[in-house]
C-alpha cells in the first residue's frame, strides 16, 4: 500500500515539474516573432555578408550565377586598393570631427547654456535645433546642399563681408559634410545632455558656488563627473549613428569629387551597386559591421556597468 502511494506521489511531482518547465518555456513563446524577424532580416544578412566577402559574387554575368570562392582575396585587395585606405581615413575624420567633437561638444554647450539662460530663447533655440534633426534626412541634405552651393546662403553671408566664396561642395567636400552632420545631429546630444543635466541636483552646484568654485572648475570637477555615464552612452550612440550616415553624403557630394568624401558606407554602395561587385562590396560592409560590433560590445558593457 505504501509503495504505490509514494510512487504515484513521485510521478505526480515529476510530472508537475515537467509541466512547470514546459509552462516556463511556453511563456517565452511571444518572443518568437521578434526572434524570427531578427534572424531572417538581420542575422542572415550579416552571415551572408561575411560569407560573400570571400567570394566574387556579382550583380550580373557569370559570377552572379556561379560565384567562386576567393578566400581572403577581397580583403587583400583592400590593402592594395587606392580608395579603401583613403575611405577608412575619411570615415575616421568624419566620425571624430562631426560626432565626437562637433555634435557632442556643441550639444553639451547648448544644454549648459540653456540651464544658464532659461525662458523663451532656450525653448526657441531648442526647437530650431531639434527641427533640423527631426526633418527627413533627404530634406536636411537638400537644405545643406543649397546652403553650401556656389549661389548658396554661406556665400551670400561671406559676400556681406566682402569675401569671395567658392563652391564649397567641390572645393572642401569633407568640411561641408562634417558641418552638415553637426547641424543635423547635434539635437540628439543636446536632448541627452539636457535630460542628464536636469538630474544634477541644484544643491550640488549651489554648494560649489558657496565654496567659490569658478564656473569652469565647477563644470570640470562637479557637473561633468556626475553626468559621465550619459557622456559615455552619448559618445557611443552618436559614433554608431555617424558611422552609418549615407543619405546626407550621397545627396551633398555623392562621395566626390574624385572620392574626396567617400566614407565606407558610400564606398560599399559604389562597389556593390554601381560597379556590381557584390563580393568586394560585402567585404567592405563586413568591415563596417565588425566595427559596429566592437562598438556595440563596448556599449553593452557600459550599460551593464551602469546597472550593477
Amino acid at each position: 500500500m505504501a509503495v504505490p502511494d509514494s510512487l504515484s506521489h513521485g510521478s505526480i511531482r515529476r510530472r508537475s515539474t515537467i509541466q512547470g518547465a514546459l509552462r516556463r518555456r511556453l511563456r517565452l513563446l511571444p518572443v518568437v516573432p521578434s526572434i524570427l524577424l531578427l534572424g531572417v532580416f538581420m542575422l542572415a544578412p550579416v552571415a551572408w555578408s561575411f560569407y560573400s566577402s570571400f567570394t566574387n559574387v556579382a550583380l550580373s554575368g557569370k559570377a552572379a550565377l556561379n560565384p567562386q570562392w576567393l578566400g581572403f582575396d577581397n580583403y587583400a585587395r583592400m590593402l592594395t586598393d587606392s580608395v579603401f585606405p583613403l575611405s577608412v581615413w575619411l570615415t575616421v575624420v568624419f566620425v571624430a570631427v562631426s560626432a565626437i567633437l562637433g555634435q557632442n561638444a556643441l550639444g553639451l554647450a547648448i544644454a549648459l547654456l540653456m540651464t544658464r539662460s532659461g525662458g523663451a530663447t532656450a525653448s526657441l533655440v531648442g526647437t530650431v535645433v531639434v527641427a533640423s534633426w527631426i526633418l527627413p534626412e533627404i530634406v536636411a541634405a537638400f537644405a545643406a546642399y543649397a546652403y553650401f552651393s556656389q549661389d548658396g546662403t554661406l556665400n551670400q553671408l561671406l559676400g556681406m563681408f566682402g569675401v569671395q566664396g567658392t563652391n564649397w561642395l567641390y572645393a572642401f567636400p569633407m568640411a561641408t559634410i562634417v558641418l552638415a552632420n553637426v547641424w543635423r545631429g547635434t539635437a540628439f546630444s543636446m536632448l541627452v545632455y539636457r535630460a542628464a543635466l536636469s538630474q544634477v541636483p541644484r544643491d550640488v552646484s549651489e554648494a560649489a558656488l558657496m565654496d567659490g568654485a569658478r564656473g569652469w572648475q565647477r563644470l570640470a570637477f562637479i557637473t561633468l563627473p556626475i553626468i559621465r555615464g550619459s557622456i559615455a552612452t552619448n559618445l557611443m550612440l552618436i559614433t554608431l549613428q555617424t558611422l552609418a550616415v549615407f543619405t546626407l553624403i550621397w545627396v551633398m557630394t555623392a562621395g566626390g569629387p574624385a572620392n574626396a568624401s567617400t566614407t565606407l558606407p558610400v564606398l560599399a554602395y559604389q562597389e556593390a551597386f554601381k560597379l556590381g561587385d557584390i563580393g568586394y562590396g560585402t567585404a567592405i560592409a563586413s568591415i563596417l559591421i565588425l566595427i559596429g560590433m566592437v562598438f556595440g560590445a563596448v556599449y553593452v558593457r557600459l550599460v551593464r556597468g551602469a546597472k550593477s
Partner: peptide
C-alpha cells in the same frame, strides 16, 4: 536576450544593405 537586443541596436544599417540586397 536583452543584451543581444542592445547589441543589435548598434549594427550599422547602411552596412547591412549590401548583403540584404543580395538576400
Amino acid at each position: 536576450f536583452l543584451y543581444a537586443i542592445l547589441f543589435g541596436t548598434s549594427l550599422p544599417v547602411t552596412a547591412i544593405m549590401v548583403p540584404v540586397y543580395g538576400l
